[in-house]
């Protein structure tokens, strides 16, 4: 029930925030832990300040779509479970969960981050499909960026299951060393507009003070693979330019944390 909107807008106009962060600072700590679920083929838990998001990857064998018979596929699902915030109710995903899932999905799919051709086992008959489930454990704001990090970490950590030679089905008890054919690593950064000022990594209170926001998914080379504008107010072309600059810079920062996490693993 707390909502310090007026003060948030006032502070932003002075370049300040409630918790003394700069407008373009992420909360601390930022942590990426992997293998948080043994039953998933890949999983990760991402912490940004008080926000905690889990992502789990399950692999299944399916018939490829008829328009791409030699390719596997991906599906991203998000559930805003009531465990993570008093704001959420049990039941099927609402629009907020659907948006979170679709934005994360586009960031990965449209950048061609996964080599879907390599996931094909038998043309037109059988291919690996990647299903990523995203759930917050504690929603303290900025689920978009946390979900992007968690999804990528879980994909990077995924190892395929063996296929039972007799039945042709997935052997979920077995393990292999085969990783997913990841071609690119896309990450999303969300920038919000408070009054006339731009801000990253909002808390829930700050999010509700945003007049508009833009999520920008980019890969290592700076190529943009997905955009999503949210909020009720418009933004100018100049603002979009500024936001993309911020997003590229912050993606670099998040990427260094991701690299550090996987360097320690190896």
């Amino acid at each position: 029930m707390i909502n310090n909107t007026k003060t948030i807008i006032q502070l932003a106009s002075e370049g300040k925030r409630l918790d003394n962060r700069g407008l373009l600072d992420y909360r601390q700590p930022i942590k990426i832990e992997t293998s948080i679920s043994k039953s998933a083929e890949g999983s990760a838990k991402v912490t940004i300040g008080d926000t905690v998001v889990l992502a789990g990857v399950k692999m299944s064998l399916e018939k490829p779509y008829s328009d791409s018979p030699n390719e596997g596929g991906i599906m991203v699902n998000a559930e805003l479970i009531p465990l993570s915030s008093s704001e959420y109710e049990p039941g099927p995903p609402g629009i907020k969960a659907v948006e979170l899932a679709r934005v994360t999905d586009r960031g990965i799919r449209e950048s061609h981050a996964i080599d879907f051709k390599k996931l094909c086992i038998e043309k037109g008959e059988k291919a690996w499909f990647v299903i990523i489930d995203i759930v917050p454990l504690n929603d303290a704001g900025n689920l978009f960026d946390a979900a992007g990090l968690a999804a990528l970490a879980a994909l990077k950590e995924t190892r395929l299951r063996p296929i039972d030679e007799k039945t042709g089905a997935v052997d979920y008890k077995g393990t292999t060393d085969t990783p997913l054919p990841l071609l690119k690593e896309t990450l999303s950064v969300t920038v919000g507009k408070v009054g006339n000022h731009l801000m990253v990594d909002p808390t829930v209170e700050e999010e509700s003070s945003f007049s508009a926001r833009l999520t920008v998914a980019t890969d290592k080379t700076g190529t943009i693979s997905a955009l999503q504008k949210g909020g009720d107010e418009p933004m100018t072309i100049e603002e979009v330019g500024q936001i993309v600059d911020i997003a590229l810079d912050k993606a670099k920062f998040l990427r260094s944390i991701m690299d550090e996490c996987f360097k320690n693993k190896k």
Partner: peptide
């Protein structure tokens, strides 16, 4: 109806 009761303006509320 007491002198120390008022409508809040500015500042911040914490929980």
């Amino acid at each position: 109806n007491d002198p120390d009761l008022f409508k809040i303006n500015g500042g911040r509320i914490i929980k």
